[in-house]
Design a protein around this nucleic acid. Structure first.
Lengths: 254, 254
DNA sequence: CTGATGGGTTGCATTCTCTGCAACGCTCGT
DNA sequence: ACGAGCGTTGCAGAGAATGCAACCCATCAG
């Protein structure tokens, strides 16, 4: 809608790939160097972009701080956190909390496994949307039409032999997840890692977040992990209750 | 430099305080509602801003993901992380890694204490710059003039009775820290929490980051914590060595 | 030492984008 | 049913952003 701002903001994902100098930025934006310079300067003033000693630009610290604040006023996170910790204390595995927003599913909280062998993941990292158990729950709750159109637009990378291969398979899986009210990812992302997940719902019954317990095969088998399902669901329901009682800020679907 | 972008970016910190509706944003920017709307739309397209069901705007998930990427290509972090973990395994306390950038000091990595009583902090959160041990190290390394001018511009909140009270005291402390090559914070931020910190240096000897070990009084006394100093310094030196050997990307001082 | 190259930076005239306005539409609540 | 409050849109004018060209200042080669 606003060309100048649009260009300026396009610089951010570009720099997220790694530092770049003025020329590179100008080229990739398709604008004159002087224009790029002024945009970068403005971003710099706001601390979103930082200049290294070699004159190249990279993303700035302010961005990290902003993101931090962004997460801190997500109500779900505040409410869910203690419950995630408790669940972790009970089962010892990695616990994740994720939300769906604008075509992305991302982790907004995490409690680390207490076993020495842990899965890799990071808060803020977008999730493998076609295979992650939490992603299935979040997408399964979208209205039919929406779900279908999203599914068609996605890529289906074959992380492993058990990854969701294509849109029809994904939609079928979503249907199943929708009916049973929980989801799993059995080696669909990393061969040796399994997850079980349950939805967190707002006052209107819509899924606002999803939580999961993940563990590698070497620690527990998929079957053993599944025995935790009731506990996970109970925790999710408790959070749902607390959440809908308190601040029913549901998110609009785009 | 660029008015439009400037205005658009000013929206972000504003929304960081909490969700706001169009009118509020327009007011605080001092522009017409239609202008604010168009700016917000552009931010929205880039996922930096999100619209809740109640029509209010808040910071978007893309921002969190961007910040994540920003952190992931901070080389120091990559290099330091395993060492921080090892240190944590040795002493059990909370370990932090912080950098200085554009008038802010912020944590870019953290390994949680293994004791039940933990201090509160979060990656990405700006640090109490006048009292934190890591902040002292990072500021102490600035050139004299720079240090003085920064010190004058700062606020000196009295978190506790032992907080740094004013600029002269701060400068004196920085001088001391500079000479001894390490720093402490003994109850200057939270009455019952102490820290010891050591600098991480690049190939040119400039301080590029600082790391600290923090623990509450109830776990170890300040004296006991100080016995960890050699270990902390050794760890920092190891990281320094590895860092300057590899990618000596030092940061320009603004 | 000199000249050339390549990057960043600045001043300026032109143009195009953004702005504010006013009218419209919509959803509440009365 | 009606009005108030908010978000939204079309438009014309104003002002801001753009690209150009010249400039600066390193670095490097001859």
């Amino acid at each position: 809608m606003s060309q100048t701002v649009d260009r300026a903001l396009s610089i951010l994902p570009l720099l997220a790939e790694g530092p770049a100098d003025l020329g590179q930025v100008a080229d990739r934006l398709g604008v004159h160097k002087s224009t790029a310079l002024r945009l970068l300067r403005t971003l710099h003033e706001h601390g979103l972009v930082y200049r290294q000693s070699d004159q190249r630009y990279r993303l700035g610290a302010r961005l990290i701080a902003l993101a931090q604040e962004a997460m801190e006023n997500l109500d779900i996170r505040e409410i869910a956190h203690p419950h995630l910790v408790r669940l972790n204390e009970q089962c010892g595995h990695t616990v994740h909390l994720a939300v769906y927003e604008e075509d992305e599913v991302l982790y907004i909280d995490k409690v680390e496994s207490r076993y020495p062998v842990r899965m890799y993941s990071r808060i803020g990292k977008p999730v493998a949307i076609t295979v992650a158990a939490v992603a299935k729950l979040l997408l399964a709750d979208l209205p039919e039409a929406e779900r279908r159109s999203r599914a068609d637009k996605l890529d289906y990378p074959l992380y492993t032999a058990r990854s969701t291969p294509n849109a029809p398979a994904f939609l079928k899986e979503l249907e199943r997840v929708r009916e049973q009210g929980w989801a799993t990812d059995l080696g669909g992302h990393e061969e040796s890692i399994n997850c079980v997940a349950a939805p967190i719902r707002g006052a209107d019954g819509r899924v606002v977040a999803a939580m999961s317990v993940s563990a590698p095969n070497v620690v527990v088998t998929a079957d053993e992990l599944l025995t935790l399902l009731p506990l996970v669901r109970r925790t999710a329901d408790t959070i749902s209750g607390e959440y809908s009682g308190k601040t029913p800020v549901k998110e609009v679907t785009p």
